[in-house]
Simulated assay, not measured.
Amino acid sequence: MKLRSKPSPKGTVLGILYKNHSFKAHSYTKWGWVNVTDTTTHIRGWVSMDYVWRSCVS
């Protein structure tokens, strides 16, 4: 998943949240974006809730 600078597909890509990395969720928007920190790389950014949900369920 791409970690973005803002909760939008147009946000600058700050890094990648890989499937085998853990993350900490901080907040979310009603538009389906979650603000997270990758606990491996310590990069904080926004990801689509669709991708986070799929990662948690699978």
Rank of each mutant, 00 (worst) to 15 (best):
H21T: 07
P9A: 01
S58W: 03
R44T: 14
I16A: 01
W53L: 13
T41P: 05
I16E: 15
T39A: 05
K19G: 02
S48T: 11
V47M: 08
K10W: 03
L17R: 02
R54E: 10
T39D: 12
D38H: 14
P9N: 01
S55W: 14
K24W: 13
I43N: 06
Y28R: 14
T37P: 01
D38T: 13
K24R: 15
K30F: 04
G11K: 14
S22W: 05
M49Y: 00
K24D: 12
T37N: 08
H26G: 14
I43Q: 10
S55Q: 13
N20I: 09
S8T: 04
W33N: 06
S22K: 11
H42I: 12
I16C: 03
S5T: 00
D38L: 11
T29W: 14
V34Q: 06
Y51H: 11
F23D: 03
S55Y: 00
P9D: 03
K6A: 10
N35E: 15
N35L: 15
V52C: 08
M49L: 00
H21Q: 05
P7Q: 09
H42P: 00
R4D: 01
S55D: 15
V47F: 01
H42Q: 09
D38G: 12
S58P: 05
V47G: 01
V34P: 11
K2E: 10
T39M: 06
V36T: 03
S55H: 10
G11N: 11
K2R: 06
F23R: 03
H21I: 10
H21K: 01
R44E: 12
C56D: 12
T41M: 11
M1Y: 05
S5W: 09
S27R: 10
L17P: 00
C56K: 15
Y51M: 07
V34H: 01
V47K: 03
S55R: 15
G32L: 07
V57T: 00
T29Q: 06
W53M: 14
S22P: 09
M49P: 07
M1L: 08
S8F: 01
I43R: 03
V36P: 04
T39N: 05
M49N: 14
K10M: 02
G45D: 01
W53I: 07
K6F: 06
I43E: 01
T40G: 04
P7E: 06
D50H: 15
L17Q: 06
L14M: 02
Y18Q: 14
W31R: 12
Y51C: 10
R54L: 08
G15E: 09
I16H: 07
H21W: 08
V34M: 10
R4N: 00
T12C: 07
P9Y: 03
A25M: 10
H21C: 08
W31Q: 05
C56V: 13
K30L: 00
S55T: 15
G32N: 05
F23K: 00
T29I: 02
K30P: 11
V36K: 08
D38A: 12
S8H: 01
D38W: 08
R44P: 00
G45R: 00
M49I: 08
W46R: 01
K2L: 07
P9W: 02
R54C: 06
V34R: 13
Y18V: 08
M1P: 09
R44V: 14
K6I: 00
V52K: 04
V36C: 06
S58K: 04
I16L: 06
T12P: 04
L14W: 10
P7C: 13
N35I: 10
V52D: 10
D50L: 14
N20R: 11
V57G: 02
C56I: 15
